[in-house]
Computed example of a mutant assay.
Amino acid sequence: MQNPVTTALASNFAELPATASHGPLRIEYRWVNEAAGNAPIAVFLHEGLGSIAMWRDWPLALCERLGMRGLVYSRPGYGLSTPRAHHVKWPVDFMTAQARDILPALFDALDINMQERKRMWIIGHSDGGSITLLYAALHPDELAGAVAIAPHVFVEDISVESIAQTKQLYETTDLRSKLSRYHADVDSAFYGWNDIWLNPSFREWRIVGELAAIKQPLLAVQGNDDNYGTMAQIDTIGERVPHAQLVKLDACGHSPHRDAPDALNEAIAAFISRQG
């Protein structure tokens, strides 16, 4: 079987200039379903240990269902994008920085103009779901809408406990070897995510207050068997964003695009269709 990271070498790379919040970055990205031509763009934001390769073929399948073009990319520290230097720790507000600085810079580098951004949908999973919410809150005049899948809006005990267990598995089983197929620097990817989530300072992280600024159509999805968060996450979204639609999937864990792809795709397609 071909190594997914090797396969991802066919990806393109965008060069982002240094700013006050980060140095120069090389971002791995790929377009999917380009045959859709001038159709709206769906942007996919991966989970805390994700990358282009870890999405597999789900973004393409969903874009074909929606009739959209898809933009998939690996955030800094993941996949083939610029690795996190091993001595660097992600700050508590690292997801805000992604929404405020990195994602707009990527759109600029790819010449995605404001007209295209206003037609765009952002679809994020887990940490990517939180970044999706933050982007929608920070850019209320952009986007056609957003889909947050298993997002975090505050830190729960279940999240910290599961992430601590994942660290033990990474250091004592073949999990590190398995993840190395998806990241050029697997330790950079893993510990960047794991260290910040297990940092005692991160227990106070929350983006509940930012949610009220979201004006665009919003779909929030979570599995009933999610071991990284309870339904309190999307229920809180529903309280703070009254126009949001919530979907709770049975027999589904933290990764609906893997655990229940048909149900997830149907929920997203139906929601976007209702927005016209």
Rank of each mutant, 00 (worst) to 15 (best):
M1T: 00
Q2W: 02
N3L: 01
A10W: 09
A14M: 04
E15Y: 15
E15D: 10
P24E: 10
P24T: 10
L25G: 08
L25N: 07
R26P: 03
I27W: 02
Y29N: 00
R30K: 08
R30A: 04
E34A: 10
A36D: 04
I41M: 11
A42H: 00
V43N: 00
F44H: 02
L45W: 03
L45S: 09
E47L: 00
G48Q: 09
I52M: 00
M54T: 10
M54K: 15
M54W: 15
L62Q: 06
E64K: 07
R69K: 07
Y73P: 05
Y73H: 07
Y73W: 09
S74K: 01
P76Q: 13
G77R: 10
Y78T: 08
P83G: 06
K89N: 13
P91Q: 15
V92K: 13
V92R: 15
F94P: 12
M95G: 12
M95A: 12
T96K: 10
T96N: 13
A97R: 13
Q98T: 15
R100K: 05
I102Q: 05
A105I: 08
L110I: 03
N113G: 05
N113L: 04
Q115P: 11
G124A: 09
G129H: 09
L134D: 08
A137N: 00
L143R: 01
A146V: 09
I149F: 01
H152Q: 11
V153C: 11
E156H: 07
I158C: 09
I158R: 14
S159C: 06
E161R: 15
T166A: 07
K167L: 13
Q168W: 03
L169M: 05
Y170W: 15
T172D: 01
T173D: 04
T173F: 12
R176W: 14
K178P: 03
S180I: 03
R181D: 13
R181V: 12
H183A: 05
A184E: 14
D185A: 15
A189I: 01
F190G: 01
Y191H: 05
W193A: 04
N194G: 14
D195T: 04
W197D: 12
L198G: 01
L198M: 02
R206W: 11
L211T: 08
A213P: 14
K215N: 08
K215S: 07
L219K: 13
L219D: 07
Q222W: 02
G223S: 11
D226S: 01
Y228V: 05
Y228E: 02
T230S: 10
M231F: 12
A232H: 14
D235I: 15
E239C: 09
V241G: 08
V241W: 05
P242S: 12
P242N: 12
H243L: 06
Q245R: 11
V247Y: 12
V247Q: 14
K248L: 09
L249M: 03
S255E: 07
A260G: 08
F271C: 05
I272R: 00
S273E: 12
G276N: 11
